[in-house]
Design a protein around this nucleic acid. Structure first.
Length: 239
DNA sequence: TATTGATCATGC
DNA sequence: GCATGATCAATA
């Protein structure tokens, strides 16, 4: 690991080791393939949580920093200069994703003027570095290993499928039917809650154009979709 | 066991 | 509330 803190100073300077090229980033990611989370945590001087219940974003942030991403909460790609978004994927013993992948929240109130071409989903998914991470409950968090990284951009076929789902789902939202959408809809994209809890509310306009409040939602990639992406790949050694 | 709906932490 | 980072946990 080359992550370190500035000599004599307490503040970590993320930009200092930010990969300058795509090749550099991918090479770095490959160098971490097989490494247990304990190794990354130790290099960063971090305590390993006993449970992820109250640390759901911990693994993602750990990998971000290990790869030199700037840990800001800005609406920009993790690797801004490279235009690359980083996503860690929790996988089972076969290397199959255990969870869907959050893509973006949905501006329920102002999606009307949006199109697939200008959508946040398309922008976010333009270039993604997927890093699988073991997530079997039986494996202690410290021992969970990183898998082989996959730098991905949608193929024509994949973008076609994503666009179809987006247009279908966004169309319903634009027409005021956000509340009729369940996670069952969508072949590769789905709409699910993205909120503090089920009581959270955000503004939207119903089918009659009246201002209403509803549960904030986000776009997610189905686990079956990311499984297929990683499928042609190899993520982890078989047991 | 795969999936859906709910939930957790943090910064601004 | 919305952006970042996601996983939990009940149910189909």
């Amino acid at each position: 690991m080359t992550d370190r803190r500035t000599g004599g100073h307490k503040r970590f300077v993320p930009g200092l080791f930010e990969p300058r090229t795509e090749e550099e980033l991918v090479k770095k990611a490959w160098s971490l393939a097989g490494a247990p989370l304990s190794e990354l945590a130790r290099a960063q001087g971090l305590e390993i949580p006993e449970s992820l219940v109250r640390a759901k974003g911990w693994v993602g942030q750990l990998v971000e920093r290990a790869l030199g991403a700037t840990a800001k909460s800005l609406a920009e790609p993790d690797f801004r200069e490279l235009g690359i978004e980083l996503k860690t994927i929790p996988v089972d013993r076969r290397g199959h994703p255990k969870e869907s992948t959050f893509v973006s929240s949905i501006a329920l109130g102002e999606l009307a003027a949006d199109s697939w071409e200008t959508s946040r989903v398309r922008k976010k998914l333009a270039r993604v570095l997927f890093v699988p991470v073991e997530a079997e409950p039986s494996i202690p968090i410290a021992n969970r290993r990183l898998g082989a990284p996959l730098l991905w951009s949608p193929s024509e076929a994949e973008e076609h499928r994503l666009r179809a789902d987006w247009q279908s789902l966004a169309g319903l939202i634009q027409s005021g039917y956000a509340e009729s959408i369940t996670a069952h809809a969508g072949e590769c994209l789905q709409v699910r809650p993205k909120a503090k809890d089920s009581r959270a509310r955000t503004k939207y306009q119903d089918a009659d154009g009246a201002d209403e409040l509803t549960l904030p939602r986000g776009f997610y990639l189905r686990a079956t979709f990311t499984r297929d992406l990683l499928g042609a790949h190899f993520s982890l050694p078989k047991p």
